[in-house]
Nucleic acid binder design. Structure first.
Length: 378
DNA sequence: TAGCGTTTCCGGTTTACACA
DNA sequence: TGTGTAAACCGGAAACGCTA
């Protein structure tokens, strides 16, 4: 009788399960796949990757000899293919079914078509496995040759500046779909995915094999942000020094990326949302706010529409009265507390300090209301 | 909670290269 | 040879993380 086997299945970020196979490890990758599909109730097509012990990276699973009991398997859901298949695309002549650009991790947002809104071009969560895009025909051709050479002779490719520039450009365009400010770990992901897909690009003399790519990507994203800023990308323009010159308060170095609860915080719309859908939520909120004991629903909708409010406040600079009429829920006690707590936490104050400040604000509001009433009476 | 070292971001500058 | 473009680099300030 076979020994029972266990596998750790990574379904997405912060989402993994343990699967047990009482009759032992499945005989083939296909059987394993259908078993995962059955036990995890997965819809749609997906492929599997295993953690390779030599490279300490996830590799495509083609044979059961790659895994053993207690191995970690990652599930990559296949994205719907566009109308024009990768193989038909003139710019991607060497794409095959395993092309990661056609994949998305299960936790990534849906494959909704991009709209003309700038925010909706960048509405996806960071993928667990970064999809390296298909490069131009000539770049793919050079990489294909170099990869063959690398596999046959172990010879690394030393990309010429033009080739490197093309690669960085394509990667920057892909990164910007997820974030304009990739973290160090995210740049690691991209560089790692790059040398994983194109092993000939692995660097000599660096421990990870991609450190130089990571640094180049960092520079590239900085320059790319400058370029997008000059093209009028709202988030980047808001954060730039030029838009802050009006206050004439300081040197040109007094710039930073604003965080939540700070004046110029300018978040993107969340995945799958755009201005129209959030405006609809706002209208719903107007009726929800009239209902009694409805804090939970209001809180949920206010959180959902946060980005829309920030866009309105920063871009349109409305009067307080306008904000009050469009967002009455913002002025109810629970929401004031929530927003104010965010603001005070940015100042690194303790919870008790936050609560004290909220109490003071409430007193101020009461005083203000009484004063208005007195003035009305007069 | 303060202090200190590190990281990140910005605009500007330098450098290298392609092209007319 | 001049010009344009992109990569790489710089200095300064804010943010962040760690530690005592």
């Amino acid at each position: 009788m076979s020994t029972p086997a266990k596998l750790r299945i990574v379904l997405g970020e912060d989402n993994c399960v343990k699967l047990t196979f009482p009759a032992g490890m499945p005989d083939s990758a296909d059987i394993l796949k259908s078993e995962i599909q059955r036990q995890c109730s997965i819809d749609g097509d997906f492929r599997l990757q295993y953690m390779d012990e030599d490279f300490e990276q996830f590799m495509n699973l083609t044979s059961m000899s790659n895994i053993r009991d207690k191995s970690t398997i990652k599930m990559i859901q296949q994205r719907k293919q566009p109308t024009q298949s990768a193989s038909e695309s003139p710019s991607a002549p060497f794409c095959d079914a395993s092309d990661s650009s056609a994949d998305t991790d299960i936790h990534s947002s849906s494959s909704s078509e991009p709209t003309t809104s700038t925010s909706s071009l960048r509405n996806q969560g960071w993928p667990l496995s970064f999809p390296i895009p298909a490069f131009s025909y000539e770049v793919e051709m050079q990489l294909l040759t170099a990869n063959h050479k690398f596999l046959a002779e172990g010879k690394h490719l030393n990309p010429c500046p033009k080739l490197k520039s093309n690669i960085l450009d394509a990667l920057a365009s892909e990164i910007i779909r997820y974030t304009a400010y990739p973290s160090s770990a995210q740049l690691d992901d991209v560089a790692q995915a790059l040398i994983s897909k194109h092993p000939s690009l692995k660097e000599h003399g660096s421990v990870s094999g991609y450190y130089g790519w990571k640094i180049s990507l960092k520079y590239k994203m900085g320059n790319y942000r400058t370029r997008l800023r000059s093209l009028g990308c709202p988030e980047l323009t808001i954060n730039s020094m030029k838009s802050k010159q009006h206050d004439k308060s300081g040197s040109h170095n007094q710039v930073k990326k604003p965080k939540r609860a700070e004046v110029n915080y300018f978040p993107d719309y969340s995945a799958g949302e755009d201005k129209e859908s959030l405006e609809k939520e706002r209208v719903d909120l107007l009726s929800e706010v009239k209902k009694r004991h409805n804090h939970q629903m209001i809180k949920q909708k206010m959180e959902k529409t946060f980005a829309l409010r920030r866009h309105e406040v920063i871009q349109d600079k409305p009067l307080v009265a306008e904000i009050k009429s469009r967002w009455p829920a913002l002025f109810c006690e629970h929401e004031v507390s929530a927003e104010f707590t965010h603001a005070l936490r940015r100042s690194r104050l303790s919870r008790s300090s936050c609560l004290s400040w909220i109490a003071i604000l409430k007193r101020c509001e009461e005083y203000s209301t009484r004063k208005e009433a007195l003035l009305d009476a007069k």
